[in-house]
Design a protein around this nucleic acid. Structure first.
Lengths: 221, 221
DNA sequence: CGGGATCCGTTACGATACTG
DNA sequence: CAGTATCGTAACGGATCCCG
């Protein structure tokens, strides 16, 4: 992996792990599924990854064609997923579904940013959205902006503010986790642990439908 | 992970990786999805994992409730998946789908046994089988037995011989890989790189249907 | 022979410091 | 901001040995 620790096995699973099985690598991809990001932004989301490790992992991901360096404006470098890198979406979503059932144990810490929320929500929405759905939702989770865009049932969630939204939804990260772990009932979450502000009347039904589907999908797995 | 290298992140993906993100762990689970296995059988399938590492990984998987020690008969210990461990099936299948597109590079080596084939085939069949399908297929891949059982569309593949099969299917591991990578056309694979022996007439249609669906699913992803 | 435990050299990781 | 350099520590990999 990092250097020469490939499994060298003639097996598709081993070949996948040779590319994304290193420590931190899947978490880096997780954050990039929420949209292009700068080096420092990634470092913050990974809470304490050493700079040299992040450098090495990014380099290997570029070499393997999963990500590429892009132009973030005024000379800034951003990393973003290639088409090949996008294909890890299903893997990451299944990991999230599997991991959501475990209680956080010991001294855990919230990530330095909420890109993980955008990724998980986006992957879930891709599966749960119905073809007739069309809306743009501006989410604020603990004050951080996430844009959820659904176009004819094609959902995309990006970490960042949403231009021209149909509605605004506020909640907290801890509340989202509680719902996904089954510790908080969906309707109680929607009634007491979040605020919904309607901008385009009529769109709020589609949004709450989608949220309910997502919560149901997570809980009954 | 191994000792205290948990990510300690409040994120479902990190919580999943704390359990199954260690080196070798997903490959161990891969082999166990093909049915219970003994220590030495696992060691062979993983081609060269050090005994101490396998011991440590198995111990952690038992502690985390993903696998358990069972009785393999005449005092033999076998490791097998718990219900929780079974839930990693989707993750492993998505890894296989992602990894199947890469050409093996450099000096790779075939795994010491073909449990990986049973796992990948089983996961694919679970998705591709239609509800009306019912058959038992005895597969021989490079002489190793894999049992594919489909009951009302519920597919299970186990590494081991199939009792009372409806048909017998022989092929080679390299041929299977070539098909899954798109280097060998499905119909050419079925005609020239495999043998089908019919035991219960009429069942061969269901089997080739399923195989075609699986190959199509892998290739157009 | 199966299922490990122990020891040891090598490699990767993690923290801090430093640089363009 | 975006990394590079250094270095102590922890994990890995290979071998050997042990016990039923």
């Amino acid at each position: 992996m990092a250097k020469n620790r490939s499994y060298k096995l003639l097996c598709p699973i081993a070949r996948a792990l040779d590319r994304i099985g290193d420590r931190w690598t899947l978490l880096i991809l997780r954050d990039l599924h929420a949209g292009p990001a700068r080096f420092t932004e990634l470092q913050r989301g990974l809470t304490g990854i050493a700079a040299n490790l992040l450098t090495e992992r990014l380099g290997k991901l570029v070499d393997d064609g999963l990500i590429e360096k892009g132009d973030g404006g005024h000379g800034a470098v951003v990393y973003e997923l290639t088409d090949l890198g996008q294909q890890t979406s299903e893997i990451i979503f299944e990991l999230a579904m599997f991991g959501a059932q475990f209680e956080p144990e010991g001294e855990v810490v919230a990530p330095g940013n909420l890109r993980t929320v955008a990724t998980t929500l986006g992957a879930a929405a891709k599966r749960a959205a119905k073809p007739e759905m069309n809306f743009r939702a501006a989410l604020k989770v603990d004050g951080e902006d996430i844009s959820l865009d659904v176009e004819n049932g094609q959902a995309t969630a990006i970490y960042g503010s949403c231009p021209d939204p149909d509605l605004l939804f506020r909640t907290g990260y801890q509340d989202l986790l509680a719902v996904s772990e089954g510790d908080l009932a969906p309707d109680q979450f929607l009634r007491e642990h979040s605020e919904l502000e309607i901008i385009t009347p009529g769109k709020e039904g589609e949004f709450t439908d989608l949220m309910s589907s997502i919560i149901g999908m997570i809980n009954d797995q």
